[in-house]
């Protein structure tokens, strides 16, 4: 806190994602130390803080597959000045959205009741479990997203480049080799 320049406060989370984007963020390796000179982390899998305080930047991995995802996304939107959708799932639903042409009841029945090797199965219905949405949605279907960082996951170099643009106040751009949808 004593440093001459106030650090930007950053929150991150993974919704309907696989944490691959967070792993890619960690793949910036020793540049993490450089990043930590510029930012401090609020709610994030890296800090285990459970709720988001006021932040300058929110980075969200994963799309929306259940009610809790929507709840967390809205908390981020309320708390963060700038919101970034990171990775294919956050940007367009990604792999989880491949269930979108299937009926959710059929899906659950196949997975929990009629699938191979299941006996006396039932669809989990504990009240603590968030209800699945009938379709998986990208983040921008529900809240305003300021910037998008595509990739599955985005390469570490793309994340680094993107964050540097953002922290320097530039509109992030990714040239050939950094912009990837796969």
């Amino acid at each position: 806190m004593a440093s001459e320049k106030k650090k930007l406060r950053v929150a991150t989370t993974s919704l309907a994602g696989c944490f691959g984007c967070h792993m890619s963020l960690l793949d910036i390796d020793e540049r993490l130390l450089e990043l930590l000179k510029l930012v401090e982390f609020d709610r994030s899998p890296l800090t285990d803080i459970k709720h988001c305080g006021p932040c300058d930047l929110g980075i969200i991995e994963g799309g929306l597959c259940n009610a809790e995802n929507v709840h967390v996304l809205r908390e981020f939107r309320k708390s963060c000045k700038v919101l970034v959708a990171m990775g294919a799932c956050a940007v367009n639903g990604g792999l989880p959205a491949q269930r979108n042409h299937l009926d959710i009841r059929d899906c659950l029945q196949t997975v929990y009741m009629t699938g191979t090797g299941i006996r006396r199965g039932f669809i989990p219905n504990d009240p603590e479990l968030p209800l699945p949405l009938d379709r998986v949605h990208p983040l921008h279907d529900v809240v305003k997203i300021d910037y998008f960082l595509p990739g599955c996951p985005p390469p570490a170099d793309a994340i680094w480049h993107f964050l540097n643009d953002l922290l320097a106040g530039r509109t992030p751009t990714l040239g050939h080799g950094l912009i990837h949808y796969d």
Binding site: A85, Q98, C152, H176, I179, Y181, D182
Partner: peptide
């Protein structure tokens, strides 16, 4: 869904989108 498409990397739609700097849909 580019991550699960076997044409990814040889796809003109994807390549044109890269060229235009399309970051999201």
């Amino acid at each position: 869904f580019c991550p699960s498409c076997e044409k990814s990397g040889s796809c003109m739609l994807q390549a044109v989108a890269y060229d235009l700097g399309v970051m999201a849909e």
